[in-house]
Nucleic acid binder design. Structure first.
Lengths: 340, 340
DNA sequence: TTGTATGCGTTATCAT
DNA sequence: ATGATAACGCATACAA
């Protein structure tokens, strides 16, 4: 039978209350008894019982807040689905989530949203803009006792509890690996990123180039473009790239704007000559895969990102459980039309 | 606030005990009160509280038994890791798992193991041999009130609670899709299956051929071999195939014996000319991928298969929760060396 | 500084 | 057929 707080109390000849105070660092207990209790607890390998905790804590309704740069970005639809699924799974324990979305990389707006939400929630899950101002803000929140988790994008040198999301470098490496296999290691590549101000996009390109260098000496990157995560902009810039580089026979779409890129390739009638690899799988991307325009896409388990971040926040709030790893990295999944 | 059994009792003017008897079909309650209670419960949308259930049920130690055809099959190592992880996650609730392993497709042996374990467990998770004798046995167990879940291999027309595992057809389709992309849709393919008596292997081949037919008219399947899931046998039969079909430039390894196949290809010095696609990722397969001998492998989330099956059994035992789908199908994951 | 009582939602065992 | 009561493990308010 598992060891409970009661058993420890018996063994130490004190009351449950005292053991509780020690094990949850509530103070107000004599040093020497504290030491004794801790010793016995460790020795017996005490682990708090979740069901008990959850039942007792039920009186307090927990609110978990989310700030996501989700507007106009279909990728986040699945993240939100994961969040909502977690809310449902945790409804027994009185958990409510509150999602605030924003559009684009407006630091001021994100700070504003943080201030709006911070006093209403027990934990904050944020898809942060990776700039010092946000990092500082996160640290402030944590100092004030709020539980903060970064999702999808990390700010490593901040005091957040943990990061849940992908390894962008890995995604880029995988993309290059796939492209290498599809082209036999010989291609003239156009890279269409979202913005060269976004860390994640740059890391994907970095990973891509690493593999290029190590394994595919005959890969030539012939041009770059920025889609600004917008299909129209993507369409224009891809058109330009295709005109300037008729030798281009492969495209890596690093971020959003995938559909715009595809439409440009289609407008040149070159969809059969150009191997397109993209990231993530939103409906328009899936449609393009079904039409054979996109050959493969590298996904980052958005549902799990949303779901796991809520569960992690909840576990921390309920039992002070700190994740064993500061980063929970989702898989870089290769999807083709057959395994969508 | 969520609706509890207590609230229902109040509203109906009865005691919790009565409500409990009704909602858990324990009988011994007057028809008309039963109807009234059910009505109110439905109306209020009562959902049992997990934490409460789990605390109360804790007195009974639950045992979940597993029968896996795991010996000599490294694929199952990850399944078992998933099972053990689930055991740890559920230890708070007094769950113990008991794993029995066997080697090869010996129906009599499997029946024997079932008889050994059936009276000692509250649920049985089985990786069944797909023959009528086992199906009948499963039905008997279920009739006797045991909870039975099939894992990794299903027996669809049986009374098992549900199946947790892959869609083998899908795996084969994915393999063909990948091969199509890697070869430009033109290849002379050798197929090395485990045994043509194993349903899953045949389904993979079926899926592979489907995509061949639909998308890749220039794929020619030039030969078949059976590895009997054994590396030595695989080595021999692949050697034979390579001798008889020098035009062969692609291999789909359907089941185990992957390493033997690779060694044969290496012994012919043809590892650069032959595109090998395999299934699953055991250590020797990973090694061959790193050496570039295998280009891609299609995986079926073994850890999740093990983990999820235990959790599903637990949920059923604790709350009678029947899975919403009779089949929980894991993803067919494409793995290359970059995203292993 | 410590102990006790009460309650969270459910199940199980009595007693009626 | 039904109700009352005691667990299960933990948190907390209150008493000492």
């Amino acid at each position: 039978m598992a060891v409970t707080i009661n058993k420890i109390a018996d063994l130490c000849g004190v009351s449950r209350g005292t053991v509780d105070r020690v094990l949850n660092n509530r103070g107000r207990v004599k040093k020497e008894t504290e030491i004794r209790i801790r010793e016995i607890a460790n020795q017996l390998g005490y682990t708090p019982n979740m069901a008990g905790k959850q039942l007792a804590i039920r009186k307090k309704a927990l609110t978990i807040g989310l700030i996501l740069i989700a507007e106009g970005n279909a990728f986040f639809d699945d993240v939100i689905r994961g969040v909502q699924s977690a809310e449902k799974e945790l409804q027994d324990y009185g958990v409510t989530v509150q999602i605030k979305t924003m559009k684009g990389y407006n630091v001021y707006r994100q700070l504003q949203l943080i201030d709006e939400i911070k006093d209403k929630v027990d934990a904050l899950i944020i898809n942060p803009i990776s700039v010092p101002a946000i990092a500082t803000k996160i640290d402030e929140l944590v100092e004030d006792g709020l539980c903060v988790i970064t999702v999808n994008t990390d700010i490593e040198n901040s005091k957040r509890l943990c990061y849940i999301g992908s390894n962008y470098t890995r995604c880029g490496q995988t993309a290059c690996g796939v492209l290498g296999l599809l082209t036999g290691g010989r291609a003239h590549i156009g890279i269409l990123t979202g913005s060269n101000k976004v860390l994640g996009h740059n890391e994907r390109i970095k990973g891509f180039k690493e593999v290029c260098k190590k394994k595919y000496p005959d890969f030539k990157i012939v041009g770059y473009g920025e889609t600004e995560d917008d299909d129209i902009k993507a369409f224009e810039v891809t058109n330009k790239l295709l005109s300037e580089h008729p030798e281009m026979d492969a495209i890596f779409v690093v971020a959003a704007g995938v559909y715009g890129v595809c439409r440009a390739v289609l407008s040149f009638g070159r969809e059969h000559e150009i191997t397109i690899i993209s990231c993530d799988s939103i409906p328009t991307t899936i449609e393009m895969m079904k039409q054979g325009v996109i050959k493969a896409t590298i996904c980052q388990q958005p549902f799990i990102q949303g779901n796991k971040s809520v569960h992690t926040a909840f576990n921390y709030l309920v039992s002070g459980e700190v994740p064993e790893n500061k980063q929970f990295i989702v898989q870089s999944e290769i999807k083709i039309v057959e395994n969508l």
